[in-house]
Amino acid sequence: MSKTLIAAATALVGAATVAAATAWAATPAETVVTRQNNFKQMGRASKAISDELRKPAADLAVIRGSAQTLANFAPQIHHWFPRGTGPEAGARTGALPVIWQRNAQFGNAANQLVNATRNFQRAAASGNVGQIRAAFPAVGAACKGCHETFKGDK
């Protein structure tokens, strides 16, 4: 139960962070930091799901809360990479210049994640662990699909 609350709160805080970051014009370095925090939230949500799926009895509430977090964040990725927030931003970032050189391809890669997290959210809502298990690898694959081309080492 408390895990559900934490997951819900995490999702809320995450959404609030994004709202705050887009409401005021942030410096490129601030945008980098916000972006990294958002991706970390997604990482946390993803790990929470993965951890549950490795348990003999997965906690569906944790999975649903985390699925919500992922589905909320994924469509926002498009707005997290304004021009000038690459390596030239002056903050440590793994964002490669190719993001802006091949921006359409980057957008497609982000859309893969939007689709995968939507499908996963549907699976989580169904409550069928087999279905949840089947839908999860596509989320990780979408992360990797984008990271391979567009993310370097920090």
Binding site: K47, A48, K55
Partner: peptide, 22 residues
């Protein structure tokens, strides 16, 4: 440990939280 995308992880990765694993 685990990779960035959570696709591969060590057998004890689930015992610790995201930040500790990172």
């Amino acid at each position: 440990a685990s990779d960035t995308d959570g696709l591969y992880y060590g057998p004890l990765n689930a015992l610790i939280g995201y930040d500790a694993a990172e």
